[in-house]
Write a protein that binds this DNA or RNA. Structure first.
Length: 188
DNA sequence: TCTAGGATCGGCT
DNA sequence: GCCGATCCTAGAT
């Protein structure tokens, strides 16, 4: 599930070099029964095709015409996926700064899905790639890091108010390695 | 072909 | 912390 992705290392390799980041913030989308999900109502357009593909693959889409968002497909036949919202740099710091801009503060480097994709140079071309395949351009590595449960904050999802109650479902997981996080139920 | 809306970001206060 | 730019995608005609 989404929780298991926290602490995992997302690696992106390109001609410019390699970037690795540790995932700290994810959001789950539960498929046809989730109004906030792109596969709500069993929708199956070209864009969401990879969400119905194999588990462990990437689903990359463009939002607001200018940003990309990277998801991990969890249950392909169910159209479920997990949106990667935030991370901290592990290696390739210079390349990340180069892509994000030299004036961007460390705090704002990877704290959003669009920023994450920019730092890792992820775009629609990466849609459908196998994230379990370490010889690929993009994959997820596991170095054994497991967040302490008390350091993980659970809350409602961001930017999906249009989905009504579903926006408040406790499907957003934020790992705060430095501090403590209270466990919050739906509604705060 | 046209229209409406969106899983965001960055600048300004 | 708040607000508006931006243009791709999907659905309707």
């Amino acid at each position: 599930m989404a929780w298991d992705l926290l602490g995992k290392v997302l690696v992106s390799r390109s001609v410019d070099g390699t970037v690795a980041v540790r995932l700290t913030e994810v959001e789950a989308y539960l498929g046809p029964d989730d109004p906030a999900c792109h596969t709500a109502g069993r929708k199956r357009t070209d864009r969401v095709q990879s969400m119905w593909g194999e588990a462990g693959r990437a689903y990359v889409y463009m939002i607001y015409g200018l940003h990309h968002c990277l998801n991990v497909v969890t249950v392909g036949e169910a159209g479920e996926a997990i949106l990667l919202r935030g991370a901290v740099a592990v290696s390739g710091d210079e390349l990340i700064r180069l892509r994000r801009g030299p004036t961007v503060s460390r705090k704002h480097l990877l704290n959003g899905p669009g920023k994450l994709c920019q730092a890792l140079a992820v775009d629609r071309g990466d849609d459908g790639v196998d994230l379990c395949d370490s010889v690929g351009r993009l994959w997820i590595a596991d170095d054994g890091t497991i967040p302490r449960p008390e350091a993980v904050e659970v809350s409602g999802r961001i930017g999906v108010d249009y989905a009504g109650d579903a926006a408040h479902w406790p499907l957003r997981f934020v790992w705060r390695p430095d501090g403590h996080a209270g466990i919050m139920g739906p509604g705060g």
